[in-house]
């Protein structure tokens, strides 16, 4: 196939569908109990140098506990899919430039550094402006297409986006001619992450998952990832899955670990469960302004706590979470 133009960004992950098939051929097929703790899942499944992807939408339905644990366990030299990465990216950046080595080394960027209308993260900016992270540029859709191609077991998919821009020039996409119409298309390489983490509403012990609300790119991510950690609001009996299989959106054979983490998307929003804690997110952004203040803040909320439950406790515990539940249901009592 003729390549008409080529983005000059580095491709961090092998897009070969055959290599991915080789790996997937070794994945367990049996219904085995995968319930474990977040600390163990991260210890066993996230390795230094891995390429990581995080589900949800930055501050919505994110596996916060996994990102905390990755930073707490000082995982090093990771690649990362910066797909609508907001608070999750902010957390991972705590592993850079703060005397704990370098958590993030390579980032595919569609959206990083910002927290949407809340503003830009000062520390994430320091990390991304330091020059210590190698970057390749994408867009939200093309990064989703990369996961979709992988979920389909393909090495690439065409798209009509990115074309003609510097975002293309700094990407690792290529422009090809359509074999049928001759039109120029962007060839978007598949992305098979080494490991991914997704937060869902319900899962059984084998990893069959249900989620509510928007799925963002998570159904493709679950299938694209070589290894997958699921955190869930609630563990449910396997029998419940069997009774209503239409609600299963991720099947057990994609999943390597299942961790029950109530309020696991906090301080992010979890649809039909609780709203985001905007006050905590604002304090986090403020703390980042000065590196010393930020170090103390992280000691209080991340490095100095033993697990996610203790973090929730430090953030106000059940009374605060109750307010956020009321906000989610528009009851307007909690502020």
């Amino acid at each position: 196939m003729d390549i008409l133009s080529r983005g000059d960004g580095p491709l961090f992950v092998d897009p070969s569908a055959n290599h991915a098939r080789q790996f997937f051929s070794t994945k367990a097929r049996a219904l085995v109990d995968k319930v474990t703790t977040v600390a163990e899942a991260v210890r066993d499944l996230v390795h230094d140098g891995d390429y990581l992807a995080i589900g949800g939408f930055g501050c919505d339905r994110i596996p916060t506990a996994v990102t905390h644990e990755i930073v707490r366990q000082r995982k090093q030299n990771l690649g990362f899919a910066g797909h609508t990465a907001t608070h999750d990216f902010q957390i991972l950046c705590a592993g850079n430039l703060l005397g704990r080595g370098q958590t993030l080394a390579r980032v595919d960027i569609a959206y990083v550094v910002g927290l949407e209308a809340r503003g830009l993260s000062p520390h994430a900016r320091r990390v991304m402006e330091s020059g210590e992270v190698v970057c390749t540029e994408w867009s939200n859709y093309t990064l989703a297409v990369r996961l979709k191609a992988a979920a389909m077991g393909l090495p690439f998919l065409p798209a009509r986006s990115l074309l003609g821009t510097d975002s293309f020039r700094r990407s690792a996409a290529q422009v090809i001619a359509c074999p049928f119409t001759g039109e120029r298309l962007a060839a978007i390489p598949a992305l098979y992450p080494d490991v991914a983490a997704i937060h869902v509403h319900e899962a059984d012990r084998y990893g069959n998952c249900r989620l509510r609300g928007t799925s963002v790119a998570d159904l493709d991510l679950a299938r694209a990832a070589r290894k997958l950690i699921i955190t869930c609001e609630r563990l449910i009996p396997h029998e419940e899955i069997r009774q209503d299989p239409t609600r299963t959106v991720i099947p057990f054979f994609c999943v390597d670990a299942v961790c029950e983490v109530p309020y696991g998307s906090y301080p992010g929003n979890m649809p039909y469960e609780y709203f985001s804690d905007e006050e905590h997110l604002r304090r986090w952004l403020e703390a980042e302004r000065e590196p010393e203040t930020y170090q103390r803040f992280l000691d209080d909320y991340l490095f100095g706590v033993k697990d996610f439950a203790e973090y929730l406790h430090r953030c106000g515990g059940l009374p605060r979470l109750q307010q956020l539940r009321q906000q989610e249901f528009l009851l307007h009592r909690g502020r």
Binding site: A110, V112, R125, E137, S139
Partner: peptide
């Protein structure tokens, strides 16, 4: 590009 003066979020969905 690899060491910008100011880094903003990037495209997000804007390019698409």
């Amino acid at each position: 590009y690899q060491k910008p003066k100011v880094r903003f979020p990037g495209s997000g969905g804007a390019n698409d």
